[in-house]
Each structure stands twice: as C-alpha cells, then as structure tokens.
Design a protein around this nucleic acid. Structure first.
Lengths: 260, 260
DNA sequence: AGTCCGTTAGTAGGATTCTAACAACAGACT
DNA sequence: AGTCTGTTGTTAGAATCCTACTAACGGACT
C-alpha cells in the first residue's frame, strides 16, 4: 500500500466528518495498535501538541480508547467496531434530519413532477437512481434501452422486479452483457431488437414508461478516470413528455412504437 | 413542528456533510416541492444570490433536480431517495477508508489489549459496544450485572447469543426488566441473585469474563436530558484485572465468587 | 542540563456566511 | 413604443469562523 492509498483513506475519513488531524491520528493508531502522542507524532505530520486534542475528539466519538498512564496510551478500537460506530452515528443523524423532513413533506411526491418542462439529472448514480424510481412507479409498461457501458445492477434488479407486474421490454443490446442476461434468465422481462440501436458514442440510456414518462441521457467527458459523466433529462405527464415520446415512436419505427 | 425542530434537522444535515446554506435550501425545497430561488429566499435566511450555488451543490450530490426554465425551478428528490443517496455516499466513503485500514491493521486486535493498565470508555453507546465485544470474545464464562436504567437490547442479544456456547450469568435485578426477561426466556442464560446488588445511584454495569477480563462502569451527570453519562474502565489479562476480579470476588461473596 | 509530556496560546490560511452590486430581462403602465 | 419597476442570475468582496500549524511553558524524570 502506498502513501497515496493512505491519503485517500484520510480524505475519505474527512468526508465522513473527521478533521485532517483526527483522520491521521486514527490511521496511525490503527497501524500502531497502542501508542503515545509521541508515537503518533513520529508516524504522521500531526504536531505532538495537537495529537492530544484530536485523540480526545476520537475518544468522544467512540473510535479510540485512552489509558491514563504516563505517558497517556491511546488505542484505536477494532476496525469492525469503528465501522459500526461510524455507521450508527450516521444513521442517528440521518434519522434526526429525516424525522423532521417526513413531517414537512407535502402531499404526494409526484404532484410537482408533472410541471411543464424537463428535469435535469447529473451523474451516473443519480441517473440510475431516477431510473429506478420511474420504473418502480410504472403501472402498465416499461421500455428501456442502454449503452453497454452503463449497466447498473440495481437498475437491472428494478427492471426484473417490476416485470413481475407490468410489461417490461429492454433492448437486445442491453442483454448482451452476461450479467444482465443472467439476471433476466428466469424473468418475464422481454427482449426487443430495436431497429436503430443507441450506438453513437454520446448515447446513454432511454426509458419510456406508461406512455407518459420519458427519460433520455447522454454521456459526456470523463470527470473521473474511467467514469464518463452522464446527464439525463426526464419529464412526466407533460406536453414535453408527450412530444418526446412521439419523437421516439417515429424514431424507433413500427416494431417498437406501440410499446413507447 | 417548531423552528427548534427545523434547526435540529438543519444541524443534523450539516453533520451529514451539508453546509448551512445547503441544508436550509434542501429543507425549504422539501417543504415546497418545487420552487425558485426566490421562493427559497422567502422561506429561509439564505440570501437569494447564494441559493443558486447551494442548489447546484445539492444537485451534484443527487439531492435536488433542476429545471432550466425562467426562472430556474428546483425540486428536491423524494425523501426515500434522498436517504438512499446519502446512505450510499456514506457507505462508499466508509468503504474507501476501511479498505485501506484493513490492510494496515496489525496482528490480532487483542494483542495490544493485554498491556498493563486500564482503558477508559466514555458514553453509554461506547460502553455498550465494548461490552458486546468482550462478551463475544468470552471462551468460558460471563458474569454480568447492570443498573436497570442501562438496559441495551444489543447487549441483551449478545449475552443471549454467547450463552449458547459458554456459561453466562446475569444479575436478578437485570431480568426485572420485562424485555430482558422475555429475551432470556428460552435462553441458557442463568439468573443469579447477587448478595449485594448494584443499586447505588452512581453504579452502572459490571462485567467479568473468563477470570481474566473485567469492566466496571459508573454513571455521571446528565450531559443530555434524560441520558446519564456513563464512564467505564476495563482491563484484560493484566495484574490490574486480576486485582479487580479478586476485589469483586470478596465483594460479592461466596455464592458468586467462583463465577467471577 | 536535557528530554519528554501535557497544556495553552497565537498566527495564517481557507472556507463559509453574509452583504452588495450589476447587467439583462420581463412585465406593467402610459 | 417608451419608461419604470421588479426579478433573475452572476460576480465580488468583507466578516466571521474553523482548522492547520507553530511556538512556548511548567513540571517531571533521567
């Protein structure tokens, strides 16, 4: 393991709420087992005088234990325990926030989606999340096509699950991926050979649901190595959606148009 | 719901990684459904000029969707989706950190515990976590007593589970709690009537394991309303542990001493 | 005397919060 | 059509706060 890996771990811990010094002290103590401020000082860039405060903060969070000896000994809790402790604190804060948010949420979540216009979604994870939501809400039929590089197993699972209750068609290209093919093997999901597959380098994913909801995505540049930025637009129960669906029907031709 | 509840939710969201403005914008959009920067400006203390940037940050995190109309419309994703999005990001960061930490962990987690001296643990959750760990590692016998106000269901579960393989005794006072009694009903956990129960107002929990590990806790003042701060000390395979266990044997008397 | 330990204090830099201003545009009114 | 007012989105800067980092000190120990 390299210094770069250690830096990456420290940055991840910072994004989990630890300060730079706290993250460094925690990592050092995990490596040491038990150690003094001096030991930590030697292993990290944290000044010895700052180790005491950082370790105390970690102790308050349940990530470190203290032995009041001379000098003071610090010990990081076992990793599994640290994971659980951080997870419990995350869930507690999330519960604290959402308990309130549940009370203020208005009517149904969908009544504002039907506003004229299209919504924009950035990022593959966020687009996948939106796709799963739309598929989960489908009442009659789902038509889905995807670029091969955009296979997302949770989307696959959502399609398979919804196929138990509504008609679900996916493009032939999609099931070229062996994992997708395997997932749909015993599923009512139907394979459809699109007359014009989405093979242009910028094409992303296409979803049409119940004749009133549509999502289209495109792929942009690589924000992260190996991961292309995907941007989607989607609309539901709007004039825009109706128009986009009509365009899709024309584009895809007779074989598919009745399923859009 | 009061402004205090809203502030608490905003603070929880900040501890989950949102800035003050981002949290306020998110809450406002959850209440509004769909809204413009002006709408948010009117509902919060966030200056209108800052709403645009905060909403963009939320969009990048997948918590908000944007409609490029005039004016721009913002929409918070459904709460369940927001929960999942935040949880997924938390798990990703945790995985990133612990993937590295797993590689640097030294030997076994226990070889540094046997260091002479006692470890200190603050907070009921952290003490419960330590108790579960020690109980899970028991190889022969466990003796546990607790103040009635410190019943923790995960500790109860841990005791029940370990009782399948080693001798576990708990104090009669502990099973006065109906939930605890119910949990142990079909369990090999054995009830022991201690000659001197831990009833002093400061007494917390007592744990003795395998004749070589001991944990004692006390209750302090109320840091949070209704929740008393518990502090524990524990030691394993040390002279201190041996002495503490001997003291416990003398204190508890003949009926119990062979089980400490 | 030198080193180590734990504590305290202060400075620098960066991020966030908050205020202010501006150009462009839309709508109302004449 | 022209004018006025309000809104929108963007940009910039000041104030505040927090973190990172440096420095110093008294006491204990060797």
């Amino acid at each position: 393991m390299t210094d770069a890996d250690e830096d990456a771990a420290a940055e991840a811990l910072q994004r989990l709420g630890l300060s730079k010094y706290e993250a460094a002290v925690f990592i050092a103590l995990e490596r040491l087992g038990t150690g003094t401020a001096r030991d930590v000082d030697r292993m990290t860039d944290v000044p010895r005088s700052q180790v005491y405060g950082a370790a105390e903060n970690l102790e308050e969070r349940g990530l470190v234990e203290v032995q009041q000896s001379n000098p003071i000994q610090y010990r990081a809790v076992p990793l599994e325990e640290a994971r659980e402790t951080l997870a419990e604190r995350f869930e507690r804060e999330q519960e604290r926030a959402f308990e309130y948010l549940e009370t203020v949420r208005r009517g149904t979540d969908h009544e504002d989606e039907h506003q004229e216009g299209v919504w924009t979604v950035h990022g593959q994870d966020n687009v996948s999340s939106r796709i799963r939501q739309i598929v989960a809400d489908a009442e009659e039929r789902v038509l889905f096509a995807s670029s091969p590089e955009l296979v997302d197993e949770e989307v696959v699972a959502a399609l398979g699950e919804r196929a138990e209750e509504v008609d679900v068609w996916v493009s032939g290209e999609y099931v070229e991926d062996p994992d997708v093919a395997a997932a749909f093997e015993d599923s009512p999901v139907q394979i459809m050979s699109f007359p014009e597959e989405l093979t242009a380098s910028a094409a992303g994913r296409m979803l049409a649901v119940d004749g009133d909801t549509v999502l289209l995505s495109v792929l942009g540049g690589e924000d992260l190595p190996g991961v292309r930025m995907e941007t989607a637009i989607w609309s539901s129960d709007t004039g825009i959606a109706t128009v986009l669906l009509q365009l899709l029907r024309s584009h895809l031709g007779e074989t598919v148009e009745e399923k859009v």
